[in-house]
């Protein structure tokens, strides 16, 4: 599931539940609609509500990174636990996406 708020020029998206291939496919269009509709300079994923994530979640974040980059914006992830951090680090995501506390 997906909750969001706009703070100045940042779109903060909070993901909850289990982010696998199925979940990534089902929220991708909603996320892209939000980006198009709110026109943020920065997209921040709040991952504190995730109980599970595999490489499909990484794919979702990388896809949004590409979209934000085309618009001249940036992406960050925040509040991920040690498990999710391990998947993100292994995938090389932190080379393109900032990690916030």
């Amino acid at each position: 599931m997906l909750l969001y708020e706009k703070k100045r020029d940042a779109l903060i998206v909070r993901l909850t539940g289990e982010l696998d291939h199925r979940a990534a496919e089902s929220i991708r269009d909603e996320l892209d609609g939000l980006i198009a509709g709110t026109n943020p300079r920065r997209l921040v994923f709040d991952l504190s509500g995730l109980q599970f994530m595999d490489s499909s979640g990484v794919g979702l974040i990388i896809g949004r990174y590409k979209r934000m980059k085309r618009r001249g914006g940036s992406v960050a992830v925040s509040k991920c636990d040690a498990r999710i951090d391990k998947v993100l680090r292994m995938s090389g995501l932190y080379q393109i996406v900032e990690r916030l506390a």
Binding site: A24, S55, S56, V58, G59, G63, M90, S91
Partner: peptide
Amino acid sequence: PEERTGMG
């Protein structure tokens, strides 16, 4: 449209 990372 499928966004696969190749990291599986």
